[in-house]
Amino acid sequence: MANPVPIVDYLVLDGPGEGGVPQYRAHLVANECAGCGARYFDRRNACANAECAGTDFAKVPVATSGEVKAFSIVAFAAPGIPVPFVAALVDCEGTSVRGNLINVDPDPEHVSLGMKVRLATYPLGTDSAGTEAVGFGFEPLSN
């Protein structure tokens, strides 16, 4: 079977986790500007920090644990998207990351501002070649 592929190129799969499938050990990487240290997750043309405007970037690992800075429990989304889900902004030791909160009940009793979370992965399914894709989210640290 082919190696699994990450949902986005800034998710790096580090191999099977303890307890086997479907969890993968993983981390996120950012494109860090050599000039000012600004971090981006997309393919870059140049640094958006106008004071810098650098064009040199290096891949750097992002902390795998963090704190929920903002969230919304989305109950209504475009057709085809399962709801509800928890969209969140997670502060991973100074790098802000967008992701869903997973492995937690999507209600205000179980999700809160400031909660501590860590990166987690889940299977997205396999394509016609039998290759598995892997998604990521953040799960409560206290699980």
Binding site: V5, I7, V8, D9, S72, A78, A88
Partner: peptide, 24 residues
């Protein structure tokens, strides 16, 4: 630009306006 193999809306946060402004 993110090398996504699948749609990310709903999988990596939300693109709905109510959800974005809720987070704000």
């Amino acid at each position: 630009r993110y090398g996504a193999v699948a749609s990310v809306d709903g999988r990596i946060g939300t693109e709905t306006m109510p959800g974005v402004f809720a987070q704000i």
